[in-house]
Design a protein around this nucleic acid. Structure first.
Lengths: 340, 340
DNA sequence: CTGAAAGCGCTTACAG
DNA sequence: CTGAAAGCGCTTACAG
C-alpha cells in the first residue's frame, strides 16, 4: 500500500509522444493545440491519472491557488456558514481554502502573515473586523484581501456583510410598532464598526418615531452572553426600566434572557428581547428569539467572488457590499407590559 | 501600495556574503553552520524580512506542509471545535490546514482527491466516518490519514474519537439508576460505526441491569432532528410506550423533545430524554439536555498529533485512540412518571 | 501548431 | 564548515 508517486508532465508527454510544452498547452490553452494532438494528450492523461503538481505550477506562476481565511475564533457560531459560502465559491474556481484563527493574539496573526509572505496564499479573507497583524505598516505587504461579517476598521479593505443599519432599523421599527417606547439598547463597546452601525439603526428608528433615546437605557457590553446578563443587573439598579431589550447580537440577547428569567420575569410578557445574527441557538431558546438573520452563506459567496475579482486585477466599484437583512419573527417580542 | 515582491534566499545570501546553500543550512540545520556565519545570516534575514518560499521548498522536498481536512458539512456543530484542536496542533508544528466539504457528494470528494494528488496536501483528516472518494481502489493513493469523530468504516485508517460505547453505557446506567426500565433507543440506521457502538453501550447497560431490550422500543432514524420527531410519532402508534428516550445524538434528542412538547408532554416529568455529543444548542434547550460531552478540541489535538507521527514514519500502536466521555447532567432527566 | 530552453526558489549530496 | 551544481515539475517567451 505504498503511495505510487504520481505521474508528472514528462510521463504524459512521453506517452502522448509530444513535448511537455505541448502537454501544458493542451491543458491550459487548448485552443492553441491541434485537435489530434489534444486528443492524444488527454488520452495520455487519462492513462496516467496525471494531475498538475500545484506546487510546481504555483512556483512558476508566482502565485498560489490558496486563499487564507483568518478568524479570531473558528468556533464562532457565525463563522461556519460563511465558510461554507467561501469554500463553495473558491472550489468552483479552482482555489482551496487555508484557515487560521488568532484568538485575538497578535502573535498568532503574525504567524499567518508568514503563510502570506511565503507565497502560500494568493489572497486573504478576514473574518471580524480587524487586521490581526499588529503594525498597520504590514498593510503594504498584504495580498488582495476582503473583510467579511464586519468591516475592517483599521485598513482600507473592501467588505462584504449584512446591512447592519438597515437590520437594526427593522428591529427598532418592529418594537416601536408593538408599542415599545422605552427600549434599552445593549451594545458592544469594542471597536467594531458593525456594532456602531446597529446602534445607528436603533437611533434612526427612534428618531423617526419621535422617540427619545434615553442615555440611561444605553448600555455597553462586549458582545458576550455574560455581558448581556450583566446589563440586566445594571439596569435594575437604575430608576428607569425599559419595556424591551434590543441587543447588539444574539449572544448578548441570550444573556439578557437568562438574566431576566433568573429574576423571575417572563419573556415576552414582562419584557421583550431581540437579537441580531440568528445564530443556531436562537431558534432553540425558550421563547425562541426574534432576531435579524445574517445571510451567511451568501456573504461568503459574495466575498470570495469579490476576492477572485481582485486577484484578476478587477477593482470593485464599491468599497462595501451590503446584503439585505431579514427579520426573523419568533416569540421573544410582544406588546409592552403595564409596568410594575 | 503595490506588494513588494518578497526577499528570496539569494537576497539574504548576498547581504550575508555567503552562498544560498549556507543560508538554507543556517535556517534548517543551524548546528552545521559556524556561529559567526549563522549570526550574519540571521541578521540578513532580519534586514530583508525573508521567509522561505513554501512552494519552492515543498516542490524540492516532495511534500507540502498542508493537511487536508475533509468533512461532509463544515457547518456541523460538532466540527468547529474539532477544527480548533486540529488547527492549533498543526500550526504548532508548522503545518497549515486546508479544508473541504463534500456534502456527501462523491464528485466533491474526487475534487479534493486532486488536492492530494497534486501534492498540495501531505496528509488527510477525515471527519465523519467515510472515505469520500468513491472506489476503495483509491485507497492506494491516499497519503497518511486519520479519521476523527467517527471511525472510517470503509478503510483501514486510524481513528481518534470519544469512547462511544463507554459514553452510551454511562447514559444507560444513569437512566436505570433513575428508575427507568422501559427506555426507547432512537438510533441511526446509516452505516456509521459510532452509532452502532452507542447502541452497544445501551444494550450492555440494560443487560447488566437484567433489563430486556424491547424490539418495539428500538427505532432507527438518520441522526437528524426530523428523524427524532418522527420516532416519537412512530412510538405513539405502538402499544408500549417508554418512560425515557435515549437518543443516538443531540440532534435526534432535540427532535424528540420537540415532538413530545408538541404533544403536550412535559420533559422530564412525563418523559426523560438524553442526547450524545453536547452540541452548543443542548445547553439552551428548555429543559437543558442531559448528554455526553465530546472532548472535541482534544479529539482534534490528538488526531493531528497522530497524523504528524504518521507523516514522520512512526506507526501508531493502536488503530484507535478512544477519549473518555463525560456525562453532562442537566434537566431533561428525572424518575419515570407513573404512566397513563 | 510545436519544441528546446530558461527559470521560478529552494535543498542537499558531493567535493573540498 | 562552506560552495557549486543538480534538480524538484512546471509555464511561456522565443524561434521555427
Amino acid at each position: 500500500m505504498s503511495i505510487p508517486s504520481s505521474a508528472t508532465i514528462e510521463d504524459v508527454a512521453r506517452i502522448a509522444e509530444v513535448s511537455i510544452a505541448t502537454v501544458s498547452r493542451a491543458i491550459h490553452m487548448p485552443e492553441k493545440v491541434a485537435n489530434s494532438t489534444r486528443l492524444k494528450v488527454h488520452q495520455a492523461i487519462a492513462v496516467t491519472g496525471y494531475t498538475t503538481n500545484a506546487m510546481a505550477r504555483s512556483l512558476r506562476l508566482g502565485r498560489s491557488n490558496m486563499i487564507l481565511v483568518v478568524a479570531p475564533d473558528i468556533g464562532d457560531p457565525n463563522f461556519s456558514n460563511i465558510l461554507v459560502g467561501l469554500e463553495n465559491e473558491a472550489r468552483a474556481h479552482g482555489y482551496g481554502i487555508l484557515i487560521g484563527h488568532t484568538q485575538n493574539d497578535a502573535q498568532r496573526g503574525l504567524e499567518y502573515l508568514k503563510f502570506l509572505n511565503s507565497n502560500q496564499a494568493a489572497g486573504l479573507i478576514l473574518f471580524t473586523g480587524i487586521l490581526p497583524f499588529g503594525h498597520q505598516a504590514m498593510t503594504a505587504r498584504l495580498p488582495p484581501s476582503v473583510g467579511v461579517f464586519e468591516p475592517i476598521y483599521n485598513g482600507g479593505i473592501p467588505y462584504v456583510g449584512v446591512h447592519d443599519m438597515a437590520g437594526a432599523r427593522k428591529i427598532a421599527d418592529m418594537l416601536i410598532a408593538e408599542g415599545h417606547q422605552r427600549t434599552a439598547f445593549i451594545g458592544d463597546s469594542r471597536t467594531r464598526l458593525a456594532y456602531s452601525r446597529r446602534r445607528a439603526g436603533f437611533d434612526e428608528g427612534m428618531k423617526a418615531a419621535g422617540l427619545a433615546v434615553l442615555p440611561s437605557l444605553i448600555l455597553d457590553g462586549d458582545g458576550t452572553l455574560e455581558s448581556g446578563r450583566l446589563a440586566v443587573e445594571q439596569l435594575f439598579m437604575r430608576d428607569t426600566l425599559p419595556t424591551a431589550f434590543m441587543c447588539v447580537n444574539d449572544q448578548t440577547a441570550i444573556g439578557v434572557m437568562i438574566g431576566l428569567t433568573a429574576r423571575g420575569y417572563d419573556i415576552p410578557r414582562d419584557f421583550s428581547v431581540t437579537g441580531f445574527d440568528d445564530i443556531p441557538q436562537a431558534a432553540f431558546m425558550s421563547p425562541a428569539l426574534t432576531t435579524i438573520r445574517q445571510p451567511r452563506t451568501s456573504i461568503g459567496k459574495h466575498a470570495m467572488a469579490l476576492l477572485l475579482d481582485l486577484l484578476e486585477g478587477r477593482q470593485p466599484n464599491e468599497p462595501e457590499i451590503l446584503l439585505s437583512p431579514d427579520l426573523i419573527v419568533r416569540n421573544s417580542v410582544s406588546g409592552p407590559a403595564r409596568h410594575l
